[in-house]
Simulated assay, not measured.
Amino acid sequence: MSHLLCIGGTRFIGRHTVEEFLDHGYEVTLFNRGNHTNPFADDDRVSHTEGDRTSEGELRLAVERADPDVVVDTCAYFPRDVRAATDICGEADVDAYVYVSSGAAYGAERVPKREDETALCDCTTEQATEDSAASYGPRKAEGDRAIFEAAERGVNAMSVRPPVVYGPHDYTERFDYWIDRVLNNDRVVVPGDGTNLWQKVYVEDVASALRIVAEEGEPGEAYNVGDEHAPTLGEWVERIADATDEEVEAVYAGPRELEAGGLELTDFPGYRPAPHLLSLSKLRALGWESTPHEESVPATVAEHRESDRTGREEGPDREAEERVLSILEVM
């Protein structure tokens, strides 16, 4: 039986990754600080090693003890973390190390963005160690470059680049914001004209991509992952409404109308000034497929209903939206 060491593994992408590998016959070891509830505590196929992944010594010991065939790294946020992990996995002769990068690693606005053609973000020395939203893309890009360098040294290291991830147990609550709006309001403010395009990806499809890349990918390669169909933001509201059986009117508001509520387009989660679309042909060539929205959205909505998440802190408050709606009614 093959063995997975998952760095992380209890919250969102990591949790679904563990389930994916378990479903395909792997034993699993989790390596994390133990700060979050372990959903696999009662599963005898899953063991837990407590430690800090930013400590090279603790990570090395975890790899030595687990002796994994595959390492999936769901929480490498700094380039130094990727370099340390690839060094350790190379020394341990791990069959595959897979780094969770991001579509934010791309530094050029192309449609679609392709792994071997679209330029990555540059990353300065300061950005490589700066924990901020502005440095996130550059840090992920530098992590990708660490993957490429490791492969040149003979390490079986690969990268998977998702855009915004949605699905059950999403602690970021970005998608919960829109579900909450649809469930609790007859009219939902959508920024712009509704045609904003920011590709998303269902979390279970990220998990399956990580496994398939570990098993079938080529060292030194990066693979985009995303939903096969990329709805506009206005279409997402419609799909959520269909999944909730709610009658909702999407009300589109441009910069002038939003100003009435003291709002801007980018205050809304899921809005991006330029379209963001990733080519998926490279991953599909490995046999990967995405989950239809007819399955992914209802599953996401169902788990949202059971949770205590609202996502309301991730976007404008309702009072500001009501002011915008009032302005639109008289225009």
Score class of each variant (00 low, 15 high):
2 S>R: 14
10 T>F: 07
16 H>C: 08
26 Y>M: 08
31 F>C: 08
39 P>E: 08
40 F>N: 07
41 A>R: 14
43 D>S: 02
43 D>A: 11
48 H>S: 10
52 D>Y: 01
55 S>T: 07
70 V>T: 15
73 D>P: 02
75 C>I: 14
76 A>F: 06
79 P>V: 10
81 D>W: 04
82 V>A: 14
83 R>Q: 14
89 C>Y: 04
90 G>F: 04
91 E>Y: 06
97 Y>F: 15
105 A>N: 07
118 T>I: 05
122 D>A: 14
122 D>I: 01
122 D>L: 02
133 A>R: 13
137 G>A: 04
141 A>Q: 10
144 D>I: 12
152 E>K: 13
153 R>S: 14
158 M>Y: 02
158 M>D: 09
159 S>A: 15
160 V>N: 12
169 H>S: 11
172 T>M: 11
172 T>E: 10
182 V>R: 02
191 P>W: 02
195 T>L: 05
199 Q>F: 11
200 K>T: 12
209 A>G: 12
218 E>L: 10
221 E>W: 11
223 Y>N: 11
230 A>P: 09
240 I>F: 09
247 E>L: 00
249 E>C: 01
258 L>T: 00
261 G>K: 09
264 E>L: 08
264 E>P: 01
269 P>G: 07
275 P>G: 03
276 H>L: 13
277 L>S: 04
278 L>E: 04
280 L>D: 08
281 S>V: 00
281 S>L: 00
284 R>P: 05
292 P>F: 03
294 E>Y: 00
305 R>D: 09
310 T>G: 09
311 G>E: 02
319 E>G: 06
320 A>D: 13
320 A>T: 03
327 I>P: 01
328 L>A: 07
